[in-house]
Design a protein around this nucleic acid. Structure first.
Lengths: 204, 204
DNA sequence: TCTGTTTTTGAGCGAACACTCAAGATATAG
DNA sequence: CTATATCTTGAGTGTTCGCTCAAAAACAGA
């Protein structure tokens, strides 16, 4: 008894992610959004309410993809720590591709820095996703500790924050025009920071 | 035979730094700039040429202050590594102040992330300052290595990038609303990452 | 095919944007 | 005090911003 939307909402969101990830919130105009989504303003506002609403949904989609990617990555490792080290190394490798689009830095971090003093709702959302990621890392680390991979004295929440910091730094450093192997080396150095937290084979 | 400007150019730049540091480039409007500098558009454009020009000079001033602060900090240490560890701890302490203004994250990093795909001139400038900082860290590390504080095999440029990454991550993490002691703990963990690079007292 | 509902369209809204410039104000030199 | 060079002012420029909405188009059920 009615008409169906002619666009794919998730596809439109993916294209919004690409635009916002590349240019940030403020530098993405509605003209550019119209072009990226191949939608006219009326349809955009009917679907997403506002530029803010679209950004919010795009950010959520980005965060969801990222969480899924981490989970899939970890699933291919038996050792949690090897998995996390591999994750850092993979970021370094993937971000070494000079032509990588739309950006190397994390959209959540970019959003936090762009909005933290100007757009409280947006920064709260970014902070919530960062807290989710921290929580996910903490759970992996707890599993590693319970399995004896990490030293029993390790504070998993604290170590999760440390690792999250390494990921942020690696991806921001990837925005710099560094020589080809610099990022790989940095990823290696960051992976090595986890070693002091490993359980000693037999301390006594 | 003529009139003197009634404003202090450096003071105006300091106020521009404050505004841009808080809101970023795009979110700082000329109305807000006029208010922050207490100058009218004609004077602003006569002095700085454009919003871009003002931003560029403000960023340079910020970077100069930062370099001077690091130099002064290091001057009060005999051990380079203790100095760098202290620098990380100081950042953690200073950024723990919830009311700290205008931002906790580094303006250069914020600029890099805001401009890297949209404003090449700006991102080049940010990258140049980051390279300067890396170079400064490298020189400190070389001195530490030459004095036997660091292991002779240490790649100082590589370690400088690693430390720069720690600083970036610490200051970004400070933008998150974390529990009071979390940042101190993170600073401590980051300081500890330098230990594996220290020269062994007597390896043989 | 006709009818009813929903979607798409794009011209156009007021507001805010970065920026200009002619006129007025002000300090210095003579 | 006068003359002059420079600075300050702020109304106003054209443009672009995010956004609206009436009309046209398109599909589903009868």
């Amino acid at each position: 008894m009615a008409r169906q939307p002619s666009y794919d909402r998730d596809l439109a969101l993916d294209q919004a992610v690409e635009l916002f990830w590349e240019k940030g919130y403020h530098a993405s105009s509605l003209k550019q959004i119209e072009q990226a989504l191949d939608m006219r303003p009326g349809s955009i506002y009917a679907s997403f309410g506002s530029k803010d609403g679209l950004f919010s949904e795009a950010l959520a989609r980005y965060a969801g993809h990222g969480a899924k990617a981490l989970a899939e990555h970890m699933a291919s490792y038996t050792s949690v720590i090897d998995g996390l080290k591999g994750y850092l190394r993979d970021i370094a490798r993937d971000c070494s591709d000079e032509s990588r689009r739309p950006s190397k830095a994390c959209l959540i971090v970019k959003t936090l820095l762009e909005s933290s003093r100007t757009h409280p709702v947006m920064s709260q959302q970014a902070n919530a996703f960062l807290a989710d990621i921290e929580e996910g890392l903490k759970r992996w680390l707890e599993r590693a500790r319970d399995q004896g991979e990490l030293d029993a004295s390790v504070d998993c929440r604290r170590l999760a924050r440390f690792i999250q910091g390494q990921i942020m730094a690696l991806r921001i450093m990837a925005e710099r025009p560094l020589p080809p192997d610099a990022l790989t080396a940095l990823g290696e150095d960051m992976a090595a920071t986890l070693d002091p937290f490993l359980a000693s084979p037999r301390p006594l």
